[in-house]
Write a protein that binds this DNA or RNA. Structure first.
Lengths: 139, 139, 139, 139
DNA sequence: GTGGTCTAGACCACG
DNA sequence: GTGGTCTAGACCACC
């Protein structure tokens, strides 16, 4: 498996959140393919040198979010079918992070142009494997 | 005074942080002008129906951050804005919010173009009163 | 751990400030090495016989100032030192203490030469472990 | 009279302290000569646009410190004879401001050379009228 | 009146 | 166990 989670301890976000986010992002960008298997809780915890409970919590929330599914006794597998929200719902869900980011940037004296540039830089780093853009009727 | 703080309790970010962020943003966008006076700790606490200490903490951190200044026995007043951090530090401080936002957006199936558009939309909403760009050489 | 905080109550500067300053100085002079762990809030409060909240406030401000970082549930750890402010800002922040000191010295009839000597003596006492000078260009 | 007090409100130190310090400094540097008369409390308060009580407090502490004397009904006059401390006592009294300054400077990443330079710059600004260096037997 | 500090004690999130 | 937040109430300095 080419995909490896990396965590930074002492950062702003808790470890379980970092694991959750990275798996979610890897699935969204195609770095984790449908039906691919996640490392076991124990293996993941050993590799990252963290408490297994922390991995378990992250995995639990991934299942709750519908991003992976659990096959009893065999492990966790990436879901192929993914929930598609309406455009308005997707925008609504994006607002908190969008506002937090833009407000922070403005408070740090970034100009509008600089802010857009920073976003584009970050997007380039991700080089997401292109997928058809999210559909779903918008009302 | 046209500017009113609003808080939501039980939410993700602590109350004192919400106050801090809203004042910081209002100053950065010019909605609070230099030398304008903030409501007193006690008045603000009454209006928001929270403990005065919580307001005091937010105000204290605004002073520490150089956003407002304290006039002994007279209240808190908005400072003129200055660029304080080195460019590298400003970028470093922006990263967490930038990544949280971009990852969230990608996970929500936004395309790169859509993400940039959302940022531009939000920037337009703020319609910051223009300020001269921060000067001052650094070695 | 060779480094111990000591406070004096009833003095000029508040307790939380004394803790903040002593840790900041210990880090700046290398007496507290990067990645070293601070005593826990509760332990420190017991040792100094003060309220845990007072220690927590000092620690919180150390985090805000970027001097230490918080590892969720594990404690506070010393950060590597970085130069954060622009030169102009560093000079601006130094002025109050500089003026207070020089005025006091002049009022006490110290000559210019004596004043410089006193400063050099104090600097020698600190014998800071040398660090590479802060890099990073600024625009 | 060539000497004028100037205060900055919103700064770190209280107004009465600024008045006290400036008079003390002016006397020490010879800008206020012995037997010169200070502006009345009322006049000073009007000129600085502050509360007369604040001026009165500053004047009161100047008398307490032996820097000026009060001639009933005629105003305050600069003292010619000034208390001369022993060298050890003068050094002892200088320590708090010296340490506060040096610690601040070190924490702001100033090098030892830069610190000395800043002190010399500030001393040059004062251009004290030279007096014989403070005598007084040392223990 | 204003803000600044400290204590006391509670509850929560994280690991 | 750790730190983070909030409330309550007290006392002080400054104007």
């Amino acid at each position: 498996m080419a995909f490896q989670i990396s965590i930074t301890t002492g950062g702003a976000s808790p470890i379980y959140r970092q694991i959750f986010d990275q798996v979610r992002l890897a699935v969204a960008t195609g770095k984790l393919a449908p039906d691919e298997r996640l490392p076991s809780v124990r293996a993941q915890a050993e590799r990252l040198v963290i408490n297994p409970n922390t991995v378990a919590r992250a995995y639990h929330e991934l299942v709750e979010a519908g991003i992976v599914r659990s096959h009893q006794g065999r492990g966790l597998f990436v879901n192929g079918t993914r929930t598609i929200f309406k455009k308005s719902e997707r925008q609504r869900r994006l607002q908190p992070a969008l506002e937090a980011f833009v407000h922070e940037a403005v408070a740090l004296d970034f100009t509008a142009d600089e802010i857009v540039q920073e976003v584009q830089k970050k997007l380039a780093q991700l080089d997401m494997s292109p997928r058809e853009s999210g559909e779903g009727s918008d009302e």
